[in-house]
Computed example of a mutant assay.
Amino acid sequence: MNICVFLSAADLDERYTAPAREFAGLLGKAGHTLVWGGSDTGLMKVVADGVQEAGGRLVGVSVDFLAAKARARADEMTITKDLAERKALLLAKSDAIVVMVGGTGTLDEATEILELKKHGKHAKPVVVLNTAGFYDGLKTQFQRMEDEGFLPRPLVDLAFFAEDGRTALAHLESEIAAR
């Protein structure tokens, strides 16, 4: 399975890097391909290293203004002209999406993917990996959106919130197998 992971390129605390490393190892050992923003820095590097060390493939999609930070040892790397093209290509190359901890770029990617899914532009499973409760507030906000009629589909149809990597991967594999 080609699993797109949206996540931070920042150097982060061990409470985020250790679970990310574990999840990456699970992906690689299961023979999955990581489709990611292509960066060889921060948490993106941690996950790419973990997948590659466990035997998985790396498919990166970077953007021209970040090309200097792109991972040289990826199995495949594409450099896009802008962020919109990057997001479209990440989605096109993936079978499923995982949203890991990140900043505004990750949030932008996550909301666009969910908006496209809401409107039926893709049906790929989306998992929000809620490491250390990072996305508790977002989950509450999404639940409020559903409760107050802002979502035309139930939240569970748009995204699955997982507390750990094993649960996230099991959900994705189950969803893909059911298709």
Score class of each variant (00 low, 15 high):
67 A>M: 07
67 A>R: 15
69 K>M: 10
69 K>Q: 11
70 A>M: 08
70 A>Y: 11
71 R>N: 09
73 R>G: 12
75 D>Q: 10
75 D>V: 09
75 D>M: 12
77 M>P: 02
77 M>L: 15
79 I>L: 12
80 T>H: 07
80 T>R: 02
81 K>S: 09
81 K>V: 11
82 D>W: 12
85 E>Q: 14
87 K>P: 01
87 K>M: 04
90 L>N: 05
90 L>T: 01
90 L>E: 03
93 K>T: 00
93 K>L: 15
95 D>N: 10
96 A>G: 08
98 V>L: 07
100 M>G: 09
100 M>Y: 12
101 V>I: 10
106 T>M: 04
109 E>C: 00
109 E>Q: 06
109 E>A: 01
110 A>C: 14
112 E>F: 07
112 E>T: 13
112 E>Y: 08
114 L>T: 04
116 L>F: 11
117 K>T: 09
119 H>S: 04
122 H>T: 00
123 A>T: 09
123 A>Y: 10
124 K>W: 03
125 P>F: 05
126 V>H: 05
126 V>G: 05
128 V>F: 14
129 L>Q: 03
130 N>V: 04
130 N>D: 04
131 T>Q: 09
134 F>Q: 00
136 D>T: 12
136 D>N: 11
136 D>P: 02
136 D>W: 12
140 T>C: 07
141 Q>V: 11
143 Q>R: 13
146 E>L: 00
146 E>R: 01
146 E>C: 06
147 D>N: 14
147 D>P: 01
148 E>T: 12
149 G>V: 07
149 G>L: 00
150 F>K: 08
152 P>Q: 15
154 P>C: 00
155 L>E: 04
156 V>G: 11
157 D>K: 14
159 A>Q: 03
